[in-house]
Design a protein around this nucleic acid. Structure first.
Length: 459
RNA sequence: GCCGGGGUGGCCGAGCGGUCCAAGGCGACGGGCUCGAGACCCGUUACCCGAAAGGGUGCGUGGGUUCAAAUCCCACCCCCGGCGCCA
């Protein structure tokens, strides 16, 4: 049996309906897909019969001659006519069936909290957040309320927000000029912050490759058929830029080209898991973001990202999901940024994922935990769409699809905002995390321990 | 971008309108032989529908001609060589 979702659709549609209910999606998608699948199978059987008759006649024409041949030709032509009609319908049904199947989201694991955004729950905390006195109540609402007791440092001065730090304190960024020349959500970064961006990327690449992840620099654009295999429709609409006049789309994360690395291929189970770390820019339209986070570089159209990606055997994906989120945690622990891990509620899961963890860092100037990392287990949802089959070496059994998992390692600009707020001193100086020193050391002009406010913008 | 050559199953490679439901080889898998391994022998090794029998589809992708297309025509994509341009 093939794709797990198709298997469920045929054998236990109620389980699929339940998954859609949990995601707060219209359950009728299941019925539509089911009836199209049934009809498609029936129609295909009928057409196969017609084709068979046609094939029999066709091949006898080669041996026939004279009147017999003329008669067979007539008969074959007649059958052809009927087939053309029927095949037109099959094509139509096939297209609609596929569309319906591709609209189906993945199932939802049982340990995912059911509900909308508000149902998302923290499952663990790390670090000692700096909490400004006026944010204590809000802090409690994000910690105590869920039954966690998180130690914090009370501070009586209000840290400057990351956007102001960037533009008005450090003066190492210019989103106004970028807005003028490229539009909102673009930015110029200068000097120390550029070094910081590079150092963060190198840090994540170094740590992850040390764990055996293979370093990959992937294509930054993909064809429609490929990128459509990796993402759901809403991501496509909200995030993806298209290159005009070409069948090319800018990636929103290295996850997309990494998933596509085995497009239309078979992978033997004894080669799994394949663990990759990708480095790439991420281009995002942010079409659904409305006016959220317009200031600064928290939510931008373009940033750098180190991405973890795994192809796995189906039986290993749950454990590997825990592994990649803990890899990300190690990176943030190294940076010293206090965070919590949340188990994303069913209504907020992307269609591809059966479960998703976010890592959210405490932002002292906002009084909120904000998303820095997202780690998803997509099981066979992407692999089915990209046609990446699993072959079991023992007995050479086919028919399954590999599982895919992805997680941010470090997203540069977001992590920079977290550093600007968390390691800010009252005088505006930013203390650079010690783990980054190694990646700044080789460069003469790179900052090593501090980023200091500047009187005016460089360049 | 232009000119020429080419894209066949996991890989190599034959076929160039009907006997192709794609030869042959390699690899992989299953079995035999063996104390075991190798060699050797037999078999399996694309996808879809079907409980099965069986049938259908598949030769880069999409169209077209034909009763019949891997084989002929058109468009596009990709690879190789040459020329041009260029970080």
């Amino acid at each position: 049996m093939p794709w797990s979702i198709l298997e469920l659709l045929r054998s236990n549609p109620d389980a699929l309906r339940e998954a859609l209910r949990r995601r707060q999606i219209d359950v009728s998608f299941v019925d539509e897909a089911l009836s199209l699948d049934v009809y498609w199978r029936k129609l295909q059987a009928e057409i196969n019969e017609l084709r068979h008759q046609h094939n029999v006649i066709s091949s006898s024409i080669a041996k026939a001659s004279g009147e017999e041949k003329a008669r067979l030709l007539e008969e074959a032509k007649g059958l052809r006519q009927r087939l053309v009609e029927a095949e037109k319908e099959l094509e139509d049904v096939e297209r609609r069936r596929l569309q319906a199947l591709w609209r189906l989201p993945n199932i939802v694991l049982d340990d995912v909290p059911v509900g909308g955004e508000e149902a998302t729950v923290p499952i663990r905390f790390w670090g000692r957040p700096k909490v400004y006195k006026e944010f204590v109540e809000s802090f409690r609402a994000q910690t105590d309320r869920y039954g966690f007791k998180v130690d914090y440092d009370l501070i009586d001065w209000k840290p400057v927000g990351h956007a102001d730090m960037l533009e008005n304190v450090l003066r190492l960024g210019d989103t106004v000029k970028a807005g003028e020349v490229a539009g909102s959500r673009f930015y110029y970064l200068f000097e120390d912050l550029v070094w910081l961006d590079l150092a963060l990327l190198l840090y994540a690449v170094d740590r992850l490759t040390a764990k055996g992840y293979q370093l990959v620099l992937p294509p930054y654009m993909l064809r429609y058929a490929v990128i459509n295999g990796v993402i759901d429709l809403s991501t496509f609409q909200d995030a993806i830029y298209k290159v005009e006049g070409e069948d090319l789309y800018l990636i929103a994360t290295a996850e997309h080209p990494l998933a596509a690395l085995y497009y239309n291929e078979e992978i033997y189970d004894d080669e799994l898991p394949k663990k990759l770390v990708g480095i790439s820019p991420a281009f995002r339209k942010e079409a659904g973001a409305a006016n959220k986070d317009l200031k600064g570089i928290f939510r931008v159209h373009q940033f750098h990202k180190i991405e973890q990606f795994i192809f796995s055997r189906p039986e290993d994906s749950k454990q590997l999901h825990e592994d990649i989120i803990s890899n990300a945690e190690e990176l943030f622990q190294g940076l010293g940024l206090p965070y919590r891990i949340v188990n994303i509620a069913s209504g907020d899961l992307g269609a591809c994922a059966v479960k998703k963890y976010d890592l959210e860092v405490w932002m002292p100037a906002q009084g909120k935990y904000r998303e820095m990392v997202s780690a998803s287990n997509c099981t066979d949802w992407q692999a089915y769409r990209l046609n990446i089959r699993l072959v079991r070496r023992k007995g050479m059994e086919r028919g399954e699809y590999v599982h895919t998992l992805n997680s941010t390692g470090i997203a540069s600009t977001r992590t920079i905002t977290a550093i600007l707020e968390n390691f800010q001193e009252p005088d505006g100086t930013v203390v650079i995390p010690k783990v980054l020193r190694k990646y700044l050391e080789p460069f003469e002009r790179a900052p090593k321990d501090f980023i200091r406010p500047r009187p005016k913008r460089p360049a």
